[in-house]
Design a protein around this nucleic acid. Structure first.
Lengths: 254, 254
DNA sequence: ATAATAGTGTCTCTCAGACACTATACC
DNA sequence: GGTATAGTGTCTGAGAGACACTATTAT
């Protein structure tokens, strides 16, 4: 090690020792997770009714503050495990929301994530922790394509639930991102069980895109890309000719 | 106003008055801006040599801490004005980087932005504030398509500059995002002056994508989409047949 | 047998790449 | 006139939509 390098490191150590992290005011940083599933031909997410102020009695995404020693990804995973009871789920960072007044308590910057999960898993996780108050709710997207904008969450009667903070915007950003990504990334598979028919996959795509797709060219496009592999099995008891079941090519057979 | 609503608001006010924002440790939040321009057939960005610890003598993106009363977008704009001397530039949020150890001082979460600017503007801004130490440097992208990964910044001799913190990752994310967005968003125009030839636009696209494009089908694709309008003017003094100059259809003629 | 969906074959349309050809300003 | 690039016309191949047709299972 050169003398130059040694003195440079000593300089840095001295600097760090003298650095006072508390000298500037700092915001709180949270993660919020948009958990998306496809069920009954539509998009659903998981929301919890807030029992405390602020935004008491409004519906909010599962979230939590980022610990000082965990990465953002780790915080999102922790929220999924602790608040929803889900692990090993496809999760990606979405966008960071940081309006100064988005939370009335104090400055809270929220790093939003989205996660994709098959309906059966979400159902099980949601039922197992019903006490936490999280409920699966249907999304109503009021725009076409990738226009973007806030998205409503509907209760069982089809009325829009009151959402906390800017969570309608976060939901909208999640839908926009997933729609855009569907074209070139194999994200449909994260929303399906290991074995699925091409019809299942098409319904997932249609739910994400919010429009009907051509049955024949969808089939050909998916098969031509080689992303799915036939399992040789067929669905049973469907009331008509049973479809071949496929699996995602990068996922080992069950 | 109902009695219920009144008491709910009183409850929230009491809650907020009692809320102690300092009870949990909080990270610092910064914005870093990847300023991208196309020049000489390649991608360039603006970096400054750090004069202080940490990462002294390494090269860093222009950035700064987020003030408590400004939005993230406003912080990015402020960095562009104060540190680079640029205003009214196409700017979008890129990604948020939050590894616990990315900055040795303390926990710093960085919300990265990218901005697109035409080379003449950047040259002027960079020259006018040469004292700040920001320099335009060429980017070398070591991967094809949208594979992603860190990106090198080269000095005048073509050697990679030592970059501060995780800024090589941030640069990589910016290139990846711009490559992906080029297909469906009219971002090429932000990198060109008001009037430009289709050749200029193609060179911008080629620099972003890192590969050559077919001249004829590029021309047709751009014209068919109706994104550009002929100005009726032609370039002069180019040593060969002068091309028609176009302008972006959504931008008024100069 | 009927209903209902799975799955195939084929035609057309659009679009991108390839390539040949003409056009035009500067030297 | 030579050179370099602008710009056009046309062919081809890939891929998506449309549609007719056959296949197969449950009832």
């Amino acid at each position: 090690m050169s003398s130059d390098t040694r003195s440079a490191i000593a300089g840095e150590e001295a600097f760090l020792a003298a650095y006072d992290a508390a000298q500037y005011p700092r915001p709180s940083v949270a993660v919020d997770v948009v958990l998306i599933t496809v069920h009954d031909g539509g998009l659903w997410t998981l929301l919890g009714r807030r029992e405390e102020h602020p935004a008491k009695d409004r519906w909010a995404l599962p979230g939590g503050f980022v610990e000082m020693d965990e990465s953002l990804d780790a915080a999102a995973e922790r929220v999924l495990t602790e608040k929803v009871g889900l692990a090993d789920v496809f999760t990606e960072q979405l966008f960071t929301f940081g309006s100064p007044d988005r939370d009335p308590r104090t400055r809270v910057i929220s790093v939003a994530y989205y996660a994709l999960v098959e309906p059966a898993l979400l159902e099980r996780a949601s039922a197992a922790r019903g006490d936490a108050g999280h409920r699966r709710v249907r999304l109503a997207v009021p725009w076409q394509g990738e226009a973007g904008g806030p998205v409503d969450a509907l209760d069982a009667h089809g009325s829009a639930l009151p959402l906390a903070f800017d969570h309608a915007e976060i939901l909208g950003m999640a839908v926009k991102r997933i729609r855009g990504k569907l074209d070139y990334a194999p994200i449909g598979f994260a929303l399906l069980p290991t074995a699925f028919s091409l019809r299942d996959l098409r319904i997932v795509h249609e739910a994400i895109l919010g429009r009907a797709l051509n049955k024949d060219s969808f089939r050909r496009r998916i098969l031509d890309r080689g992303l799915v592999v036939a399992t040789g099995k067929r669905a049973a008891g469907v009331g008509h000719r049973p479809p071949e079941l496929y699996r995602f090519a990068d996922r080992p057979a069950a």
